[in-house]
């Protein structure tokens, strides 16, 4: 039971990162590699602020804002300096590695005896789960509402058909930058919560998290096939929780922890290629019939 709850809690915290990547990869159609850097940035900023005595909730917000700055830099690289999307993100991510060490003063910071949001509410399994669920639910509802506003719909349309949006008189650059800021805000909030939940922040905590988040997104999409927006968001959260259970399972079946990244990459690759595999299968079935 305890394991069940803590696995769910972890899934919820990582779901915020996955929701952030859903914005860039799925809504904006922008392969944003900043995410790994801004997740760590969220962890470092939050850790430093908490050690400095700041309220843990406020420090999560501050971490999120730092993340959105990182997103803005990537957006600037891409829209104003015309650097490829993927490269823009990588540049920011690499730069953030040094910046994160500067912020923390060293490669990692412990929060063990410090006040975290989880200790604030009692630090039990259930309360930790509720913290994750509450933050996730609030962010999910805000996202759903935002992407129905005129601004939100223009961001979605920019990702869907940029040329049309320009012909419609929309400044697509600013839409992209804004979407990157929102996405990286979420990544950093996720990083701040991860740091508080595990009790330390580490300069390498972001490594490999994009694949984890993408795996969550595609697992969710495979499980929940509704096209309405709120269901797509819920699918991401469900996917993130499922991912944690899958990991828990394979670890218990004896997989070595160092193989997890390989495993995750393979799962994500298979799920991402499902549409193509389906096409090939239906085509060969048709051919066989003829």
């Amino acid at each position: 039971m305890n394991i069940l709850i803590s696995t769910c809690s972890q899934g919820l915290i990582y779901a915020i990162l996955a929701l952030g990547l859903f914005i860039t990869f799925r809504i904006l159609n922008f392969a944003d590699m900043t995410a790994e850097g801004s997740l760590t940035l969220g962890g470092s900023v939050c850790a430093v602020l908490i050690i400095g005595g700041m309220n843990p909730i406020l420090s999560i917000l501050a971490a999120g804002l730092a993340g959105s700055l990182a997103g803005m830099v990537t957006g600037f690289f891409h829209t104003k300096l015309k650097i490829q999307a993927i490269l823009s993100g990588i540049l920011t991510m690499i730069a953030l590695y040094s910046i994160n060490i500067r912020i923390m003063g060293k490669a990692n910071l412990s929060l063990l005896s410090k006040k975290t949001i989880f200790k604030l509410v009692g630090d039990t399994q259930i309360s930790n789960f509720l913290v994750g669920l509450g933050i996730c639910a609030v962010l999910l509802l805000i996202m759903d509402l935002f992407f129905k506003t005129r601004l939100g719909v223009s961001i979605r349309a920019t990702g869907d058909n940029e040329q049309m949006m320009r012909a419609q008189g929309v400044n697509t650059d600013s839409k992209k930058i804004l979407a990157l800021m929102i996405s990286n805000f979420m990544c950093a909030v996720s990083g701040a919560l991860i740091a508080q939940s595990q009790g330390y922040s580490d300069v390498n905590m972001g490594t490999g998290t994009i694949v984890i988040a993408l795996a969550s997104v595609v697992i969710g999409e495979a499980l929940i096939r509704k096209s309405s927006f709120i269901y797509q968001l819920i699918a991401v959260v469900v996917g993130s929780i499922c991912y944690r259970f899958i990991i828990f399972l394979v670890l218990n079946l004896g997989m070595s922890p160092s193989d997890l990244k390989l495993f995750t990459a393979v799962v994500a690759a298979i799920l991402l290629s499902l549409p193509t595999i389906k096409k090939i299968v239906t085509r060969s079935v048709k051919n066989a019939k003829n």
């Binding site: 005129r150 719909v153 223009s154 979605r156 349309a157 869907d160 049309m164 419609q168």
Partner: peptide, 18 residues
Amino acid sequence: KGTAPNLTIEENLSIAML
């Protein structure tokens, strides 16, 4: 070129109202 395929008809039209 003129419409966003993954958005609904009404969402597309709302873009024109921007």
